[in-house]
Amino acid sequence: MYDESKLVKQAIRGDSRALSELLREHYSFLYQYLLKVTMNKSRAEDITQDTMLKAIEKITAFQGKSKFSTWLIAIASRLVIDRVRRSEVEQHWLKEEQSLRAIRFETLQSGDEWSDALQALGQLSSDIRIPVLLKYYYGYGQDEIASMLDIPVGTVKSRLHNGLMKLRKELTEHEEA
């Protein structure tokens, strides 16, 4: 039977098998989180891989105070933010537009609808989308998000406020159109 706390303890002590089992168990969760954050399949795959490698390197520093999934999300979010900071603003905006179009096309091709809600979420910049998803979709508290992203709680609050305001505005505009 899958026992996360036992596996975490073994992984911290250096058990490679336990660590690989933990990573496999969280692979899907991590990829799906990153896909929502990046709205780009190849980037989500890349960062999932990088997050796993970082987790292998840093597992001995993991104290087990939070859930393993929370720790992975924190690593992944910081990697996303670093990548966004490194790319130029204008270029980044263009790439985000293209990615959003591509994932929209793929979703429609699979026979599902691309709702206004997903479009509105995709149009948020990643520094706002990340706290919005963590708070309202994954249910993390503002303090937890602040420590995960290494930013002050005040910044989290303002990003959440701005994020919801933008989402409301986008959805209202779509309804009126």
Binding site: S20, L35, K36, I103, S115
Partner: peptide, 25 residues
């Protein structure tokens, strides 16, 4: 959003590599 995002997740669920591939990694 909740249901729509969950559906989006389900639609884009990845193929999980085998245990052996994780062990090797």
């Amino acid at each position: 959003f909740k249901d729509k995002i969950t559906r989006f997740d389900d639609l884009h669920a990845p193929l999980i590599p085998s245990s052996q591939q994780f062990d090797e990694l």
